[in-house]
Amino acid sequence: MNNENKLSSDEIALYDRQIRLWGMAAQARMRSTQVLLIGIGAIGQEIAKNIVLSGIGQLTLLDDRILTEEDLGSQFFVSKNEVSMKRLEAAGPRIADLNPRVTLHVDTDKLRAKNDEYFSKFDLIVGTELIPADASWLNDATRRLNIPLYITGSNGLSAYCFIDLIQFDSQDTKLQSQIPTKLGKVSKNRTITNIEIKEDSNNNDKKQEIITTRHIYKSFSELLKTFTFEGLHRRQIKRMSNMVPLTLALLTIPEELNNEQLTIDQLKEYTLKVCNQGGLLKDILRDESIEQMVRQRNIEFSPVAAIMGGAVAQDVINILGKKQSPLNNFIVFDGITLDMPIYEL
């Protein structure tokens, strides 16, 4: 760490409790990063709160929507008398106030008005509540520019996140157990490429392994085209939350159907296609779940936003600072059972 990157004593005091989690070097690294967060609804606000508090360098919020009455039921940083203002004009100042050390930019342009030059400034991009076409469009740009991308959204009691870090080498340190870790493929998208053995400074009898894992990712459109649940244990498939195929169905359904008029039968049809492609058992699908998904489609709910927003922010902070094993590459949260599986699709 050179002197420019050294934390001041004020910063050490403010960030004390989290520096103890990820160390001073990671905290200092985060200070020089720039993040773009698209969409400042319920999940967007949760992510913004968490990463502003963490002390990243600069955060840009991009959202062109108008604040509605309905937003008041799930978004914390807005107020009744701001309804019909730009959402960002309402929420921006309250988010900025969370941590004066972070530079916050607000941008009320449309996403599609942005180009590669705009995106290329950022170290990482998070897109929330995007329609699948926009998510794919954005992901094409981040792939061209080699920028990590998170796509997240919620449907009432359930939520999802797609992660594309393109290729990412993580480092995890763990105590060596009886059976030493081996090099090689550990799962569909992860391969251990290096293991370094270190003495444990606090305990001479034990050794630590510094494990480098290479994570590979797929683009959003490729994932939707090629996903399969092959390789999962039969029990995992049998017990899979209905929200998993239903979420994928909402992401693959043609845009012209994905609106207020979407019927239970239509969603069912696409969910069956998902089951077919993914190798899932059709009999796990329950009509109540399909009905729930149709009713709660695109509805924001504060606890669910807090959970998924927390998970996304934590991973963002992790890859900007500490570089421990990141999420790979699709998570779904089921708010009834609290199931939150991570799939490498």
């Binding site: 968490n50 508090l53 009691l157 807090a306 959970i307 927390g310 998970a311 609290l338």
Partner: peptide, 15 residues
Amino acid sequence: AVASTNGIIAGLSSL
């Protein structure tokens, strides 16, 4: 202690 964990846990608790 960090904000994100508290956010997740409080979300689960209220839910």
